[in-house]
């Protein structure tokens, strides 16, 4: 069986199992004529934030856009930007802080769309903790706070400490890039964990611990309310393959909207695509459902970036000396490829 027939069969099969697919056979480019795109995720393994990509792939949105997308996973969380800059990947998924330090380091990358629109990073404590945004100082002083050592946490923690009127030396920051913050929290190895709500809450629910996870959102204690994740590419790739970037974002937007309207089916798609991800379908489903509210801005828009978000972020990164200067927002992003 040749590649063309195999691709056609795959397309037919996709359409047969996907009654909601908006793709028609006539509009779908054949596998052989599709443009290959390597997409790099920000994490070494797949998780539910990949749901839009999986839906776009499995339900034919990429095929309809004439794309053949291969998803690649980096060896660690700090390699995706380099993969983009060196051409090892065409389009990638990174945090806005990764983008900030990349531009600061002179890496020629460009954010082409927001993934999430707001900041859902938070400080978490075990059920029963009385920590709130108002009593941070007394609750945090001398306590152990977990961090994965990623740039986002590195950027957000100082805001929490500033709001609490504490310096970094007045708390014990436990950095463990390969550990599990929730396990450490529930085992009592740390007093607070840090993560985003869409990852932490499903993990907590899955642990079957009694009570509710105590959450203090970063934005409630002075952290900037800016998007966390973006789709990015190399500037050279954007210049040379603008139509491909646009087609990619168009397909992903359609898939994102579909996945937001059909969270259960979308999470099932992810679980089916990555049965060995190590996550249960219940975790994927809850994680994706908790992600959905953060995908649109106050106007209900997906993907749209603003000068304000990048300026706010850059100033925040400079204030904690993660970057040396605040460049023009256009250095970071463009909306010209948005569908």
């Amino acid at each position: 069986m040749n590649r063309r027939r195999l691709g056609a069969l795959a397309l037919v099969a996709t359409l047969a199992v996907s009654p909601l697919a908006v793709v028609s056979a006539s509009s779908a480019a054949s596998a052989a004529t599709r443009t290959n795109v390597t997409f790099a995720y920000d994490f070494p393994g797949p998780d539910f934030e990949l749901t839009p990509l999986v839906v776009a792939q499995d339900r034919g949105y990429f095929a309809a856009a004439g794309l053949n997308v291969k998803i690649a996973f980096p060896p660690n969380t700090s390699t995706t930007t380099r993969m983009l800059a060196t051409g090892s990947a065409d389009i990638g998924f990174i945090t806005t802080t990764d983008m900030g330090v990349a531009i600061n380091a002179g890496a020629p990358v460009l954010s082409v769309a927001n993934y999430s629109m707001r900041n859902n990073w938070a400080l978490f404590a075990k059920p029963g903790s009385s920590v709130t945004a108002k009593n941070l100082k007394t609750q945090l002083k001398g306590k152990r706070i977990f961090s994965y050592g990623d740039t986002w946490t590195e950027a957000m923690l100082p805001f929490v400490l500033r709001a609490a009127g504490l310096s970094a030396s007045q708390v014990k920051i436990v950095t463990d890039p390969t550990g599990n913050d929730l396990t450490s929290l529930l085992q009592g190895r740390v007093d607070y964990s840090t993560s985003t709500t869409n990852y932490e809450i499903p993990g907590f629910v899955g642990s079957k611990t009694k009570g509710n996870l105590v959450t203090v959102l970063g934005t409630a204690v002075g952290a900037p309310d800016v998007p966390i994740w973006v789709y990015a590419t190399a500037k050279s790739y954007a210049s040379a393959h603008g139509a491909t970037v646009k087609a990619f974002l168009s397909a992903v937007k359609k898939a994102t909207i579909w996945a937001a309207k059909n969270p259960t089916a979308a999470a099932a798609d992810f679980s089916k695509a990555y049965p060995k991800s190590g996550y249960t379908n219940a975790y994927n489903q809850l994680g994706w459902k908790l992600t959905i509210p953060y995908l649109t801005n106050s106007k209900g828009q997906y993907f749209t970036q603003t000068d304000a978000q990048w300026t706010t972020l850059a100033k925040a990164l400079k204030s904690i000396k993660l970057i040396s200067s605040v460049p023009s927002p256009s250095t970071y992003y463009t909306n010209k490829f948005l569908p």
Binding site: N76, T77, S78, T81, R82, D98, V101, A102, N104, A105, A107, G149, D150, T151, E154, K172, I173, T175, P177, L322
Partner: peptide, 15 residues
């Protein structure tokens, strides 16, 4: 706090 390995992890994250 930090360590030589974590210093390297941070440096890697910051390109």
């Amino acid at each position: 706090g930090s360590s030589l390995a974590l210093y390297q992890v941070h440096a890697n994250s910051n390109l």
